[in-house]
Design a binder for these strands. Sequence first.
DNA 1: CGGAACGTTGAGCATAATCAACGACTGTGG
DNA 2: CCACAGTCGTTGATTATGCTCAACGTTCCG
Lengths: 233, 233
Amino acid sequence: MASAPQRCLDCLVRDKSLCAAVRDDDLHTLSTIGHRRVIPRGQAVTWAGDANTLCANVVTGALKLTATTDDGREQIVGLLFPGDFVGQPFADQSAVTATTLYDSDLCMFPRIAFERSLGDHPTMERLLLERTMKSLIDARDRMLTIGRLSAQERVARYLSDILRHGGVENDDGSVEIELPLSRGDMADYLALTIETVSRQMTALKNAGLIDFAKGDRHCRVLHPQRLAGFAEV
Amino acid sequence: MASAPQRCLDCLVRDKSLCAAVRDDDLHTLSTIGHRRVIPRGQAVTWAGDANTLCANVVTGALKLTATTDDGREQIVGLLFPGDFVGQPFADQSAVTATTLYDSDLCMFPRIAFERSLGDHPTMERLLLERTMKSLIDARDRMLTIGRLSAQERVARYLSDILRHGGVENDDGSVEIELPLSRGDMADYLALTIETVSRQMTALKNAGLIDFAKGDRHCRVLHPQRLAGFAEV
DNA sequence: CGGAACGTTGAGCATAATCAACGACTGTGG
DNA sequence: CCACAGTCGTTGATTATGCTCAACGTTCCG
């Protein structure tokens, strides 16, 4: 039996993606159906309502999952980062539109072939189940955020979430974070308008909680504790 | 090998619950770990944040899944009806509070034992995966509803959803529906207040779209098409 | 230089929340 | 049998939150 190709063994997300559930020896078949591709920033890889042909692992970059009304109102219903899985096995139609936020490297599989792989690798199917359940909890948690928190709380909560995942701590207790979303995308994520997001950011700045020394997308959180306090929940 | 007990073969949700993925011959082990219990209306069966010990199939009745803020703001993040599955395998903590909306008959399993059963029955695990993905789509769809629709649209959409699932059509094209939620629960479901829900219901009534001849919880939809039009999306 | 994308800020407004009162219905206990 | 409290739903008056519309600054890139 052929062994796994080096490009899979060396993959940046070998231990973070669904592939983590597959042993090196068994990686062969998966590797034959998957192919890597860099998708430029701002490009959609699946469209809500269209035929569901694609599954993929995010290797680098980030994507937003969006739902939209007929008249164009948009809601970001999920964010994907390296190691995350894109797509919905066993569905004929795509439920969401997936768009890259940066140039993103995806390891793409034809949906049908990927479904077969799931059947061949129970450990991978189990991991997908656990991740799907985790995504469901996230989605429900965001229903509470969107439905019941004030604009101020939503923004504070968003910053706190980012801080929890990838903040870099300074000596003085402040934390530096990179904001993966533009103000517009933050608005679509938090179900607000751009203007409201902007106003709440300046409000937090004026309150001395955060600072923007290095540009709009780089944020220094001066008082992580107090910020978390604003986020309630 | 022992065969499945008659109470399982005769079960109301034999073909609708996760058990539908298990053949009669294999139902034995599942039947030994499950026990039926009627939970009175308004009682919680899992609490968000508490130890996650329970999984169950809904046999009769209905439940709401809720998330709440520290200060008591509530959001209904899901509704469960006969055949639906309650619980989250592989998690130590419950993410949501599940509360009965009516006296409800549940077929309950200890979580750990149920997880073992999932491993023993790949077809059931597959069905759970598909249902979890379906729930995720529902949750994301509701994020759009809650985040981007007006009060009027949310209420119209809610009624349309119910109509689609279990409306009884009359000769004249109107459709009768039973509302499973009180105005208060509708408010928590749609991220509105009771007053706003009430006002929107009367607005729809005054617009000649719906009628309440048989009480507040029974609704006659006079113009399903036009109602759907109000729901946009 | 001009234009596009992004972000901020201000003024005014609209939608839904809040606060309050009231009616209908149900079950309980005197 | 009635009084009573409790739950549920409706309606009105007022307010506040966040949206809309508009202007303007900055950065980046052709």
